[in-house]
Structure formats: structure tokens, C-alpha cells
């Protein structure tokens, strides 16, 4: 059980796909013009990641080492095609916004990376937890970046959520009164800058946490 806890913590913070591993940068930057887009993209990626982890873990004993990468790529591409068609059918508005980047989940290095680094060596339950943790960590990162850019760029939070994700998400929508927004944050330069500052922020936070745990451990050892 504690094993699953470490997996969760790893995916959500310590080994976060975006903030720690610096993988999957293209979707991270490109679709995070709003919190809603980030959330939608994150959830779509999580779905692909969990199922691909399960499938890879299932076939790990039958696929030989030489052909494993092409096999993984085909599995992932098939899943992405399914997600692409599902979004097109049921969440068409979101599909139009994310556009090209749904298909590009195929080349999201995080998914192939998890298949290679984890699922191919692990049991099915552990692979599911790992996929979920990594996926949610990715979703969290995308949503945070999206929210910051949206807040600075257009003065809203989760705008269009009811339109893109379904009417039940309407409660998320917030509009900051009297703020027109700085367009720059919505444009690509804003994405790079926000991620840069978040990376620096995470490093400061990690250093503080480490100093605190070191201070807590010091009297015990002395």
C-alpha cells in the first residue's frame, strides 16, 4: 500500500512529468491558453496513459526486446486515435480548440517514457496507479499553467468550461471584474515565461522543504 503512495507522490510532485522531468513540453505550452483547455488536454492524456500502461504491462512477457518500441508506438497511436474520435463525437467544442494537439498525444514522450521505464517491468495494478499518478500530475501542471496564463492574459478563470467540458462544469467559471488582461500571456512568449517562473518557484519550494526536514532530522540524530 505504501508502495502505491510513493507512486502517487512521485507522479504528482517529486517526479512530475512537466516540472521535474521536463517532458511533454509541446502540449504543456501550446494548449494552456486557459485553465479549461489545460484540464481537458490533461484528462485526455491521462486516459491514454492509463490504458497504454495497462496494455504494455499485459503484453510485457510476450513481446521481445527488439520489437518492443514499435509495438508500444502502435498501441499508443491506436489509443490516441480512439480518444481523438471520442472527443470529436462527444466533446466537439473541446476537440476544435485542442485540434492538432490531440493527435500529437502520440509523440508525447511522457507516455512512451512511462511504458519504457515503468509498465514494461511492473504488474498491472502498479502500472494503473503509476499511469494515474503521472497523468494527474500532468493534468495538474497543465491546469495550473493554464489558469495563471488565463488569469494574467484575459482576467478569467476556467472561461468556457460549461461550453467545452459540459454544463455541469459551469460552477468553475470566474470573471475578474475590471481587468482587460495582457494579451502577451496568452501568446507563446507568455507560456515560456510562466513555465520558467514556475520551475524556479518549485525549486525554491523544494529547497525550503528540504531545509525544514533537515532541521527536523538534525536534533534526532544528534
Amino acid at each position: 500500500m505504501s508502495d502505491f503512495k510513493t507512486l502517487m507522490k512521485d507522479g504528482l510532485w517529486d517526479n512530475n512529468v512537466v516540472f521535474a522531468q521536463m517532458l511533454a513540453l509541446c502540449p504543456t505550452m501550446a494548449v494552456t491558453t486557459s485553465g479549461t483547455n489545460g484540464l481537458g488536454m490533461g484528462l485526455a492524456t491521462t486516459a491514454v496513459l492509463v490504458v497504454s500502461n495497462i496494455l504494455v504491462s499485459l503484453i510485457r512477457k510476450t513481446v521481445s526486446d527488439q520489437v518492443r518500441i514499435p509495438v508500444f508506438v502502435v498501441i499508443i497511436a491506436t489509443l490516441v486515435t480512439v480518444v481523438d474520435m471520442a472527443l470529436n463525437a462527444w466533446l466537439h467544442e473541446l476537440y476544435k480548440v485542442l485540434g492538432l494537439f490531440i493527435a500529437l498525444i502520440v509523440v508525447n514522450c511522457a507516455i512512451l517514457g512511462r511504458a519504457e521505464a515503468f509498465a514494461v517491468k511492473s504488474s498491472i495494478p502498479a502500472s494503473i496507479v503509476d499511469g494515474l499518478a503521472m497523468g494527474l500530475g500532468f493534468t495538474g501542471a497543465l491546469t495550473v499553467i493554464g489558469l495563471i496564463r488565463e488569469f494574467l492574459g484575459s482576467g478569467t478563470l476556467f472561461a468556457q468550461a460549461s461550453n467545452l467540458l459540459g454544463p455541469s462544469f459551469a460552477f468553475l467559471e470566474v470573471q475578474v471584474p475590471g481587468y482587460g488582461g495582457a494579451l502577451l500571456m496568452i501568446l507563446p512568449p507568455g507560456a515560456f515565461a510562466v513555465l520558467g517562473f514556475l520551475l524556479a518557484g518549485k525549486r525554491v519550494l523544494d529547497a525550503r522543504l528540504e531545509a525544514r526536514s533537515a532541521a527536523a532530522a538534525a536534533p534526532a540524530s544528534a
Binding site: 512568449p189 507560456a191 515560456f192
Partner: peptide, 23 residues
């Protein structure tokens, strides 16, 4: 570079400025 920005973080900010120039 300020310590927390060393490495990847400053690279991101640099890329942002380049992107601004390309706009």
C-alpha cells in the same frame, strides 16, 4: 543567474524572449 533560475528555468524565460522577438 539567481540560484533558483539556474538551468531549465532561465532557459524557458530566454525562449520566451526569443519567441517575443519572433512575434
Amino acid at each position: 543567474v539567481p540560484l533558483p533560475f539556474k538551468g531549465a528555468a532561465i532557459a524557458m524565460v530566454t525562449a520566451g524572449l526569443m519567441s517575443l522577438a519572433f512575434m
